[in-house]
Write a protein that binds this DNA or RNA. Sequence first.
DNA 1: GACATGAATGTGACCGGTCACACAAGGCGT
DNA 2: ACGCCTTGTGTGACCGGTCACATTCATGTC
Lengths: 345, 345
Amino acid sequence: MNVTGHTRRPASIRDVATAVGVSYQTVSRVINGHPSVKQSTRERVLAAIDELGFRRNATALALASGRSRAVTVLTANTTHYGYASILQGVEEAARAASYAVGIGVLESAEEAAVAAEVRRAADAGGGLIVIAYDPAGVGALAAVPAELPVVGVVETPATPPGGDRPWVWTDDREAAHAVTRHLLSLGHETVHYVAIPSSTRRTSARTTGWRQALQEAGAPEPRPLQGNWGPAGGHRAGRRLAQDPSVTAILCGNDDLALGVLRALHENGRSVPGDVSVAGFDDAPHSAYLTPSLTTARLDFTGLGRAAFALLHGVLEQSAPIAPHGVSVPELVVRESSGPPPARV
Amino acid sequence: MNVTGHTRRPASIRDVATAVGVSYQTVSRVINGHPSVKQSTRERVLAAIDELGFRRNATALALASGRSRAVTVLTANTTHYGYASILQGVEEAARAASYAVGIGVLESAEEAAVAAEVRRAADAGGGLIVIAYDPAGVGALAAVPAELPVVGVVETPATPPGGDRPWVWTDDREAAHAVTRHLLSLGHETVHYVAIPSSTRRTSARTTGWRQALQEAGAPEPRPLQGNWGPAGGHRAGRRLAQDPSVTAILCGNDDLALGVLRALHENGRSVPGDVSVAGFDDAPHSAYLTPSLTTARLDFTGLGRAAFALLHGVLEQSAPIAPHGVSVPELVVRESSGPPPARV
DNA sequence: GACATGAATGTGACCGGTCACACAAGGCGT
DNA sequence: ACGCCTTGTGTGACCGGTCACATTCATGTC
C-alpha cells in the first residue's frame, strides 16, 4: 500500500520495527523464529513485513553472522557435459537449501592463476566445491587453505587421498572395468584405450579399471593412447588406431573422445561395430542418437553434484545431517557401437 | 611472519592500521588508491597489508558501499551447449573485471517459481543477466523489478522490445536466412523446418529468417514442425519427415535437433546428404565430428556472454564504457550434411 | 509479602568496510 | 603576518543485520 509510489531502498528490520512500534530486535526474533515473542506481537510484525515487502538483506546477514549460505563451484570448464551436469546438480541441491551458488572458472592450470582463482572464490565467502578432474582442478583443491570448508569432486581415489577432507566421486574404476569386460565378453582379444588427461601424474581410475579387466581376462595390454577432452583428440587417436588392423575394440575416456574415434574410423573405411567396436564414458545426451549409437557407461553427474553439496552443507552447518555421499553405481548402457569382432581371416 | 602459527580470523583494515600506527581510514585510502596519502605512509601500509595477508572483505564492502561487484546469471539450463557457453562467456568477462558470478536455474516456467528465483537472485545483490531463450527465461526477465540492473540475452527482437532495457542477441534471423538460402541454392525446392520452442508466443527469429528466405525464393512454405531442445524431439520430428519423399532439405532449430533428425533419417533408410540435406544451428563442438558432419550456422555464444556482461558492467558502473553490444555476425559452416537434392525421378 | 523464575522486550556494541566531515601542517600570494 | 588553498590524516556515523546482556513485568513458591 505504498501510496507514494516510489519505493526507495528496501525496508530494513528497523523500518518494520518502527512501523509496528517495537524494537528492531523483536523483528529479528520474529524472522528467526525465536520462541519468546508474544503471539500477538509476532502477528503484527509478520503483517508489517508483508506490508513493507521486507526481505532480509543477505549481505548484512553474512557480515553480522559470519555465515553466508553460499557455495562457489570451481571448475576448469562449464560447457563439457560432465562438468555442466555436476554444476546443475550442485545448484539444484543448493537451491533446495536456499544457498546461493557462485562459479569460478579455472582458465589456466598455471599455479599462480589457480591460486588467484581460489582466493577469489574464498573472498565470496561460504563453502567451496572444486571439480578436480583435471590438473587445474587438482591444483585448486590443493591450494585451498585448510581452514576453508571445501568438498572435492574427484576421480575414484586409489586410497582415500589426504584423508582429512571430504570428497565425492563416482566409481570410475568399476565403470571402466564393466565396459571393458563387456567388450571382452563379446569375443575381442583385447581392448584399446584412448585416455582422457589424468587429473594427476598417476594413472586415472578409468585406466586402472580397464587394465584390471584386461589382466583378469589374461588379455594383452596395449599402451593407452593419450587423447584430450574433446572430439578432436579422439579423432587424432582414432586415426592412429584405424591403421592397425588388429584393433577390434576401443574404449574411450569419454563420449566426446568416442565421437572423434567413430569419425576417424569412418573416414578410414572401418565400420562400427562390424570391424571395430567402440565404447565411451558418461552417456552424454547425444550419445544415444549417434549413428551408430554409442555403448557407454552412464555416470550420474547430477547426483554427484547434489552429493557434493549435501556434504558441504553438512560441513557448514553441523545441524544438517552429513548425508552419506552415496558413491553412485555406474550403469553399462549397451548400444549399437559394440558387437562381436569380425570373423578371423 | 605470523610466528604463532594459528591464523585466526583474517586481518581487517583496523588490524593493518594499528600495525602501521595510522588510522583505519588511511588504510582504506591506500587500498582504494586515493591520491592524498604520503608516499612513505602508503608504502608502510602496503607492506603491512602484505605482511598480514590482508584481503578486503567483499561482504563488508558490499554492505557499506552498496555496490557488490557481482552478477547472477539466471538460466533454465546449464548443460545445453548454447546456455553453457553464454555462462562461460559471462564468467570470463566478469573475472576480468573482478566480479563474482552467481547462477540460478529456473527449473520450472511456472510463474510463482520463476518469481521466487528472481527474488533469490536479487537478494544476492549486484546485477542480473537473464538468458531468455525459453518461456522460463522470458518470464524471469519480465519478473525483474524495474529498479534492478538487468541485461537480457534474448532472441533477435523483432522490434527492440520494451526499449527501456538493455539486451544482447545474436542475429538469429539472419543466420536462419543464410542457412536456408544455402540449401535453396543447392537446388532444393523448399526447406522444411524443425523448430526449437519459441521463447514467446510469437514466432521465433529463426523461424522468421527461414520463412523470409523461402518467400524471397518463391519456394513453398511448409508448416514448421515443433521440436523441443534435445535430440529426442528432433528424432520424433525426423521420423515424420522421413515418411514424406518430397522432403529433401531440413533446417533444424539447433544442432541437437539436427542430430535427432539425422538419426531418424538413417533409421528410415534415407541417406544424408544423398536423399535429404540437413542443417543445424549453433555449431556445437560435436557437430563437426558427426557422420555426416553437420552443416550449421555458427553462433558466438561465448562472445554473447561477454557482451552481456560488458553491458551490465556499464550499467552498474557509469564509469565503465558502455561497450557496443556487438551483434556478432553468424557464420555459415558448410559440411557434409548438405548437398544437392537427388535427381528428379 | 519477599524473592527467584521465566517470558517478553529493549539497549548497546559489533561485523568490516565506506562516507562526510573536521582538523593540522606546509606553501604561497599579498 | 595574515588568510587561503592543498596535502595528509583522523573521527564519528552508517550500511543492516546479529549477539550478549539488561530490563520489565507477571507468576509461582516459600
